[in-house]
Simulated assay, not measured.
Amino acid sequence: MSDSTKAYAAPARPATTPLTAMLRTAAIPTILVGPIALVIAALTGGGKGVLGSFLGYAVTLTFFALGMIVMIRFATVRQPLIFMATALAVFFGQLIFLLLVILLLQDADWLDGRAFGLTALVVALVWQAFSILGYLRARRPVYDTL
């Protein structure tokens, strides 16, 4: 069999994609931020502060983790336009989810809104910073292998 008639075998895809590296790198520090925020909220805001902080932590962590998991599921799509459409749909879904949470909790007097907002902000900043770090450290092919 000549070289021109041999079946082409595509190289194996790396086990870790930039998105999985981003998820792994961002999840651990973000999970560690939660207990610190809860302790600070307990010291400064009491029970309402702890409840607000916990809810802000849970909503924000869920918000970012689910979005990244959905993107990982669609990472195998070979067409860039479909992948970008999926990314925009995930982002739009996250905005709607966050808007619904804010609308549901805007008149909640059983939690501290300041603790909720500050915890959500800190968790979001930690997630974004470490997901960028994960992306920068991920092994990405410079050219398409197919």
Rank of each mutant, 00 (worst) to 15 (best):
M1W: 05
S2D: 14
S4K: 15
A7S: 11
A9W: 08
A9N: 12
A10I: 05
A10M: 04
A12K: 15
R13T: 10
P14G: 13
L19C: 03
T20D: 14
T20M: 07
M22T: 07
M22S: 10
L23D: 09
R24S: 06
A27P: 05
P29M: 06
L32F: 00
P35L: 12
P35W: 01
P35T: 12
A37C: 10
L38K: 11
V39F: 03
A41E: 07
A41L: 10
A41H: 01
T44R: 10
G46P: 15
G47Q: 03
V50I: 08
L51P: 10
S53I: 13
F54W: 06
L55K: 02
L55P: 10
A58G: 03
T60R: 01
L61N: 03
F64E: 09
A65I: 11
A65H: 09
G67T: 05
G67A: 07
G67F: 00
V70D: 03
R73L: 05
A75Q: 14
V77M: 11
V77Q: 09
Q79N: 13
Q79A: 05
P80Y: 04
P80M: 14
L81W: 08
F83A: 03
F83Y: 12
T86C: 01
A87K: 00
A87V: 00
L88V: 15
L88E: 08
A89P: 09
A89D: 10
V90R: 00
G93N: 07
Q94T: 03
Q94L: 07
I96F: 01
F97V: 00
L99M: 09
L99Q: 12
L100M: 13
L100Q: 04
V101C: 15
L103S: 03
Q106N: 15
A108T: 14
A108M: 02
A108F: 06
D109R: 04
W110F: 02
L111E: 00
R114C: 15
A115F: 04
F116K: 10
F116G: 06
F116M: 12
G117R: 15
G117P: 13
T119H: 04
T119E: 02
A120L: 00
A124R: 01
V126A: 01
V126R: 01
W127R: 00
W127G: 08
Q128P: 04
A129I: 13
I132W: 03
L133Q: 01
L136D: 06
R137K: 04
R139E: 09
R139T: 11
P141H: 04
V142S: 06
D144V: 10
